[in-house]
Design a protein around this nucleic acid. Structure first.
Lengths: 203, 203, 203, 203
DNA sequence: CATGAATGAGTATTCATTCAT
DNA sequence: TATGAATGAATACTCATTCAT
């Protein structure tokens, strides 16, 4: 009958974790919102922590797929590839803005779980980014630069609008959940790639 | 007798909030770490929420002073001024990296308190940034651009390393608490200002 | 397993509320006495206040039934009916002397809860008493009198021994929990009805 | 300068004890209302319990004076004397209706303090009442009756309106704090004395 | 006399989790 | 699978009281 208890729990959890944080959300709140019995959460995810890990995994599994998808276009050039990756990721984050906000916030806490997720997924992401950047430098598309510092900047540009959505809305009057924003913001990142990374073209 | 109970509470609170998040920290933990009685927290800050607000206010009061300090150099040119602001802010965040991490994370939750802090401090910050950018465009230093989108990027660049310190350390092997990092990262932001914002100089 | 947790809580609560007052009783005390976990109190009654309201309601629900039971004999005459009501009520209060003492004491505090209970139950009681008195006057059984002042007196006579049980025991050596007392005291009230309310019979 | 700190505390205490009960009132509430420092309460009354006992003593000291004052008229006859006592007491209770309500409610709890107060003051009161009743019977003014049961009734009549002031106001629309009520209610008690206690006069 | 700071025990309530059904 | 009852530990907060100043 209720075939989607599990899914209901996840949706409720994401929504509440986003609004109130992980520790600020009780499994009773989640159970109420999902209209299931509290014990079901333990049943499906062992514990509240298990539910969190499930959310992390779900998010980053797909996140990495998007990264890989963008990376696949590397043979069209490093610059094109990086823009492609940005575009795909921004779109993904924009489409899951709530989820994104909660995940990125929770990832800024230095816990055991976070460390594991980080080494599992962010190391792979770093591998792809590094590859693109290195190949770009080799092919003279990109100026030689400190790869780590470039990644810091790129990741800052990627995550900021979705982690600080209230700031964008309240202070800048930008609405990062709208596709329009994603499109325009991607262009800004492309500009950053062109101006900061790429070798300058002569006029 | 113990004259610095209040200060001890604040220091313990910042440290624990950073490590475990606001909701993940109990006032008992804080009292233990500060070696004071739990009741003192209520005595000085009314409630746990009051303590949080005190932290926010303390942080942003100083933050805004730094912004204003950088802004004061506007008569040396918009580009110079923005670089100055970046430099001052990055230094401040780097020196208070724990505090910064906790504050920025907590600011990403959409609560009443956060909204108030945001309208109080971020609106002022936006005013200064906007002014610098507008004047830069007027004086032909900066290319005309969408100010809001520029601010999004700049803020992303400013905050990222301190909000995601574990990521920098674990994945990129960068250490955002060191002055060395702050100096080098400031140069990167200066490059972004030069390349993305400024009018291109002819060779 | 333990099927009567709820009932155990109620019994423990009444006993402790009576002995120490509502505010003088902690839910820990109640849980200990009832040999259940503290959390069960919240589980069954939401809050300590909820437990109080449950007690009030339980008491007055039955109290009103007794009043109605006595009132049912109105066709045997107003005087007979009022005596019947007194008898039934005194018996009820005597049988639940602890409960009675606690409830009547708590009802003397001017709180929101009390006001609600009062308008729900005491208004109905007043309706019945008023009816009996009015009909008694109409049928020339009772002398015409101020109904409100008569009700004050009657209620004073009804409640006093059970509200001030320690006084009766310690000072007057009367034991209001014994059936013997109830029987004798009922006769006293009957005398009051005869002498103060009823039209005097000629010798 | 502040010469009446002590008095301010007492007034605040009575008012708050009446509204919220003894346990429902914190000494901080009292200190705030009295506009004195919390520590002053301990200074003047040793403890919160000491403040309560001071209130009890103050009340019953005066209460007993009133009883004695009424008793002094015994040589005008037992009936007259009892009416005099009622009149004086009702007036006193009416004038101090808040204080009365709180004291009588607190006296219904079976505590060590209450027991002491009871044996100190209520025993004396009983002595006087008993004397009046006995002399009344001796002098053929009163019919012979069980003195204890008569005292129960009389005390019930005396205390009820002031202990249950909210009931009188909300349900019966009587206002026991007004002098008018005291006067009229005294007449009702006189009627009770005449009809229930006194030997019937021939027409 | 009066006070602000501090304490330790206590408060009601909420938590994640378990388990028999 | 799914649930209502139950648990023990933890939560933020309040209490009366003390004491140096």
């Amino acid at each position: 009958m209720k075939k989607n208890s599990k899914e209901a729990i996840i949706q409720a959890a994401i929504s509440l974790f986003t609004a109130n944080g992980f520790d600020g959300t009780s499994i009773r709140d989640i159970a109420n919102k999902a209209k299931v019995n509290v014990a079901n959460i333990s049943y499906y995810f062992q514990s509240k922590q298990g539910l969190l890990e499930y959310c992390f995994t779900t998010f980053f599994e797909e996140y990495l797929l998007k990264i890989e998808k963008g990376y696949a276009s590397l043979d069209h050039g490093a610059s094109f590839c990086l823009k492609q990756m940005s575009s795909v990721i921004i779109e993904f984050l924009c489409d899951n803005i709530q989820f994104t906000s909660f995940i990125f916030r929770e990832m800024s806490i230095d816990s055991q779980t976070v460390r594991e997720i980080m080494t599992t997924y962010y190391r792979k992401e770093k591998y792809f980014l590094q590859k693109v950047l290195e190949i770009g430098v080799e092919s003279k598309e990109f100026r030689p630069q400190s790869i780590s510092y470039i990644i810091v900047q790129l990741k800052g540009l990627w995550t900021m609008p979705f982690l600080n959505a209230p700031y964008l809305r309240e202070v800048l009057y930008l609405f990062p959940n709208e596709r329009y924003f994603a499109a325009k913001y991607t262009l800004e990142i492309n500009k950053w790639i062109d101006e900061v990374l790429c070798v300058k073209k002569l006029a």
